[in-house]
Amino acid sequence: MNGYCFPDGVSASNSSARQPAAEQRRLTKKDVLFSANTPFTGVFAIRRGSSKTSVTADNGNTQIVRIDLGGDMLGLEGFAAGIHTTTVVALENSTFCFLPYDRLMHVAQQRPALREKLLGVMTGTLVYHQRAAYALASTNAEQRVAGFLIVTSERLAERGYPGPDFVLNVTRQEIGSLLGLTLETVSRCLSGFEERQLIHVRGRHVELLNQIALRKLVVQVV
């Protein structure tokens, strides 16, 4: 993670270009960054920490749709809707940058690299949700849990953390919500992986012992 509010890969020659009137917001665990149906005035980026993004159906049921890590941009759906359609909650003490829409668009016009990066982030978010929908429709419980562990490891490694050895800031119930599984099924899958010496679990600390075997369980699209 580069420590700036803009996505990785966007270079700038001065601090005003790197952080266009960005406002830092520090949240503690369980604090709400923004809620569904609130006005869209800009996008957020995680500078430090992590969060969960969820949607609420008309019947009141809430489902987690994404675990957000440092460098991720949040609230992008508001570009089209004019309001936030998701709710984001901090999973730990975290720092977010708020990028006002008008200033972000002004800087994007001046910096083609930033504009292209933003489009890339939006496209990547769409692809992510398409793959997640496919996985829920076409994979079994073990494949989903294995895919979650592999993807989490890869995402953390991209941010400079030791990928195969990490701490989960989400509960097993939250993992189940993300994957469309019950708490009991998630626990059963993790216990099964540990019995087969694919992983080692200590509380929320997870170590991937046999990534090759885990990857064999995962459908390529995940």
Rank of each mutant, 00 (worst) to 15 (best):
Y4Q: 12
Y4W: 14
Y4N: 11
N14T: 09
A22E: 11
E23S: 06
K30I: 12
D31S: 15
F34C: 02
T38Q: 10
P39I: 00
G42S: 06
V43T: 06
T53C: 13
T53M: 14
I64C: 10
I64W: 09
V65F: 08
D72G: 06
L74P: 08
G82N: 01
G82H: 01
H84P: 02
T86V: 13
V89Y: 09
L91N: 13
E92A: 12
F96L: 11
F96T: 05
L99N: 00
L99Q: 02
L104F: 08
H106C: 09
P112Y: 07
A113N: 10
M122Q: 05
T123C: 12
V127Y: 12
L136D: 03
S138G: 00
S138E: 06
T139N: 04
L149V: 05
L149W: 05
I150H: 07
S153P: 08
Y161C: 00
G163M: 02
G163R: 00
F166H: 02
V167Y: 13
V167E: 09
R172E: 14
S177E: 10
S191N: 11
E195V: 10
L198E: 07
H200K: 07
V201N: 06
H205T: 01
E207S: 05
L208F: 05
L208E: 01
L209S: 02
N210E: 09
A213F: 04
L217T: 02
V222Y: 15
